[in-house]
Design a protein around this nucleic acid. Sequence first.
DNA 1: AAAAAATACCGTCAAAACACCTTTTTATTA
DNA 2: TAATAAAAAGGTGTTTTGACGGTATTTTTT
Lengths: 221, 221
Amino acid sequence: MKPIEKTNVALVDDHVLLRNGLAGLISSFDEYHAIFEADNGRDFIDKIKTNPVPDLVLLDINMPEMDGYATAQWLKQTYPLVRILALSMYDNETSIIRMFKAGARGYILKDSEPRELKKALDSIMSKGFYNSDLVSSKLIHSINKLDDKESEVKQLVDLNDREIQFLKLACTEMTYKEIAEKMFLSPRTIDGYRDELFEKLGISTRVGLVMFAVRNGIVIP
Amino acid sequence: MKPIEKTNVALVDDHVLLRNGLAGLISSFDEYHAIFEADNGRDFIDKIKTNPVPDLVLLDINMPEMDGYATAQWLKQTYPLVRILALSMYDNETSIIRMFKAGARGYILKDSEPRELKKALDSIMSKGFYNSDLVSSKLIHSINKLDDKESEVKQLVDLNDREIQFLKLACTEMTYKEIAEKMFLSPRTIDGYRDELFEKLGISTRVGLVMFAVRNGIVIP
DNA sequence: AAAAAATACCGTCAAAACACCTTTTTATTA
DNA sequence: TAATAAAAAGGTGTTTTGACGGTATTTTTT
């Protein structure tokens, strides 16, 4: 019998029963081994110091003390090579996006089938990420929306394309003169755009313009 | 023989040969029918007015006159129900993100196999999106990065309390003189803070300060 | 206690930003 | 095609910003 190089998995979840069940399940897969468990992020940070560093962490999102989001951020910063699979009861878009932002490489629901868990683990270890239809649709939808705010605001305060373009450039370190050059317009015209926006938006400085643009998603900071 | 409700597909690409080939291929699939073709975005906008509105548009990214991004944006705004499958020669992250931002529901490379095209079309029409491993990895990677800069910069540039307070005020419409008053300091001192931050952050205008503060969560827009 | 380093402060000046008001050019449409 | 609206460009003056080259005071280090 050949010795197999198993993938070490740590479990972080505040529900003891579920956690134990998961540990058993994972260790029942040939290639995986549950090395240790923790109740929450704080507990996990303590335990990772006195245990071998896992290859992968199965991380619950909703936990007391320190939640999955904060834990993932900490992990990404401290052990960037440890891969994270998020585990959650909910499939809402914000949770998913937040966890991926925080460094997760996959996201599965707690009521998934064992074989989906296995598939997720395999995919993360081989491809570097796991992507279900659930995640894809939310991800694509969320990226799709990024651009929408622009058009919304356009209608609210009715800004034309030139003004939008000007606003974007006003959020850079260019001077108005440079912006004028870039837009093939006279500096006076830019002056006009600025003054009109000041009027329309009830502001009076370039900083005001920048904050407006950021707040309304016209520039993505 | 039952009449089949076919999905109408429009093709937008400046390469005539490729376009014709695609049209043939698509019409060879039972469920799809290529209704019309266009050379570029401008041409497409003209033609959509005198043709039946397609269910799906196969849209090239790199085109003269009006490129895929602009065309997708226009489509999303004007015919939000028309689904877009982006077609590109390149697999770079920015292109992919840009197209999804602009409303695409799928992204395939020009050198894909016919059966992948078929799969993409089917997936977009049934699930609403098509997601290859290529797209997933770029999407996840791009979302992963969102959070990175934040934590990195906070450590690289350690700012003291006064600088933080100044930065927050610099994001308002106050002049430096007014900021000085509010902080019970001489305007010259504020000048000093500003210059030091310029130096530290490698920027040279107040707009730069504002964008830095926003990007790093020092002010919540 | 001397040296070093932050910290707060100062003057000048040119460039950029802002205000206000006018004229030309380009589109629109009646 | 004349009337009109809208976009672009111009003139002039004030205020704010940013660059540069400094000094006095406090705090930290040695």
